[in-house]
Amino acid sequence: MTERLRVHVDPDKCQGHARCKALAPELFELDEYGNAHEAGDGIVPPGLEDKAWLAKSNCPEIAIDVTEE
């Protein structure tokens, strides 16, 4: 079985650039201030792996972790 990915936004690093929400709207949500957090438990549904990596590699604050489990 292939490994599954999980995304996580470090709330202390996120400054609300919202790049993750623009690039991977299925995986991230914004609060009332526009700061991001992962949707649900952060598990990346099959087929969205590329978007998870794209969000990570476009975050100016390096606030997003993608882990394989």
Partner: peptide, 10 residues
């Protein structure tokens, strides 16, 4: 934080 809500993507 006062200024952020009126400027969210939504």
């Amino acid at each position: 934080q006062l200024l952020l809500p009126p400027f969210t993507p939504d």
